[in-house]
C-alpha cells in the first residue's frame, strides 16, 4: 500500500499553473522530500494532500483516503506543519501543546514518547509565550504540535526555511529519529543540500516534477563529467569560462566554479592556455562528482 498516491494532479490559480499533471507515490516509512525554489508548486501540493485546497484535475489519495471526498478522515490522521508559523503566539509552549492535544482528543502524556526527543529542547521554556521563541525553537514547537496525536503521516512545508544551519541540522536529526519510529514524512525544502537526507526526493520546478528517485540514483542517472576550478580572481575566471567556446555549463559552487565541457569536446590544455592568455594563471582544478544542486541546474536547462 502507498501512503500517498497522486495521479495526474493539476492546479491553476487564474492563468498561473501551479501544478502541471504530476504523479508520484510515497511508501510506508519513507522520508520523502520535495526539493525546489519558491513558486515551484510545493505549498500547493502539500495543501492538496492535507485537503485544504481542491485540485482542478487528477486524483490524490492519502492513507487510502481521497483528498476531496474523505477530507475529514485525512485531517484527523495527518500531522501538518504549514510554512508560516501558525501556533498561538499568545499561548505558552505548554498551552499550545495541550491545545493541539485536546483538539485531537488526546493528551500530552499519551504520546509523550513520540515528542520526547524534541520536547527536551523546549522544556526549559515551557512557560514562555510561543511568540517570544527564537526561529529554531518555534519550528521545534510546531513539529511537536504536529506530532501530538501520533499521526500516520507527517507533512511539513518548508520547516527549515530561514533557519540557521545549526537548527537545520538539529531539525533533520529529529526527522531521522521519527523515521526510526516508523513515521512516514513528506517534507518540502528550497535547500538543495537537504536532498541527501531524504530516502527519495522529487525535484520540482514551475509545477513540474523534473525527476524523482533516491538522491544517489538521481546523480548517477544524470551524470556528466564535471570539474571544479578556482583561482584568486574568481570574477575574472567566471567571465572567462563563460566566454570559452568549448564549455557547456559554468556555475559557482562555494569556493569553486563547477563546469562541464561540450559533449565530446573536452580539452583541458586548450582551456588552461586560454585562461593564461586572459591573465588567469594561478588555477587549481579537479574532477568532481556532481551533487543534487548540479543535477537540478542541469535538469532546469533541459
Amino acid at each position: 500500500m502507498s501512503i500517498v498516491k497522486v495521479n495526474n494532479l493539476s492546479k491553476s490559480y487564474g492563468k498561473t499553473e501551479a501544478l502541471k499533471d504530476i504523479s508520484f507515490e510515497v511508501k510506508p516509512g519513507e522520508l520523502f522530500g520535495f526539493i525546489g525554489p519558491d513558486g515551484a508548486g510545493k505549498t500547493t501540493l502539500l495543501r492538496i494532500l492535507t485537503s485544504l485546497i481542491i485540485p482542478d484535475k487528477g486524483t490524490a489519495e492519502v492513507l487510502g483516503y481521497d483528498v476531496v471526498k474523505d477530507y475529514r478522515k485525512i485531517r484527523s490522521s495527518v500531522g501538518y506543519m504549514p510554512g508560516r508559523f501558525s501556533l498561538y503566539q499568545d499561548l505558552s509552549v505548554e498551552e499550545n501543546l495541550k491545545f493541539f492535544a485536546t483538539i485531537f482528543g488526546t493528551t500530552l502524556e499519551e504520546n509523550y514518547n513520540l515528542i520526547k526527543n524534541i520536547y527536551i529542547y523546549l522544556e526549559p521554556f515551557k512557560k514562555r509565550k510561543a511568540g517570544k521563541l527564537s526561529g529554531g525553537m518555534k519550528q521545534k514547537l510546531a513539529l511537536c504540535c504536529a506530532l501530538i496525536h501520533k499521526p500516520d503521516l507527517l507533512i511539513l512545508d518548508e520547516p527549515t526555511t530561514g533557519v540557521d544551519p545549526v537548527s537545520r541540522d538539529e531539525f533533520w536529526e529529529m526527522l531521522g529519529g521519527l523515521k526510526a519510529e516508523g513515521i512516514t514524512t513528506v517534507v518540502s525544502t528550497p535547500y538543495m543540500d537537504e536532498a541527501k537526507l531524504c530516502d527519495r526526493v522529487a525535484l520540482i520546478q514551475k509545477g513540474n516534477i523534473l525527476d524523482i528517485d533516491k538522491p544517489s540514483e538521481l546523480i548517477k542517472r544524470n551524470y556528466r563529467k564535471m570539474y571544479a576550478i578556482k583561482s584568486d580572481n574568481m570574477y575574472g575566471l567566471i567571465k572567462s569560462l563563460n566566454e570559452f567556446e568549448n564549455i557547456d555549463s559554468v556555475n559557482i559552487f562555494g569556493e569553486y566554479i563547477h563546469f562541464t565541457f561540450n559533449e565530446g569536446d573536452e580539452n583541458m590544455d586548450a582551456l588552461k592556455k586560454y585562461l593564461s592568455e586572459k591573465g588567469i594563471t594561478e588555477i587549481e582544478y579537479k574532477e568532481i562528482k556532481p551533487d543534487i544542486e548540479d543535477i537540478f541546474i542541469e535538469l532546469m536547462r533541459k
Binding site: 525546489g36 525554489p37 519558491d38 574568481m234 556555475n251 559557482i252
Partner: peptide, 19 residues
C-alpha cells in the same frame, strides 16, 4: 532566499560585479 539555483548564481555574479 527561495530563488532557484540558477537565479541565485546570477544574483551572485551581480554582487561580484558591484564589488
Amino acid at each position: 532566499g527561495g530563488v532557484d539555483p540558477v537565479m541565485r548564481r546570477q544574483f551572485w555574479t551581480l554582487i561580484y560585479k558591484a564589488a
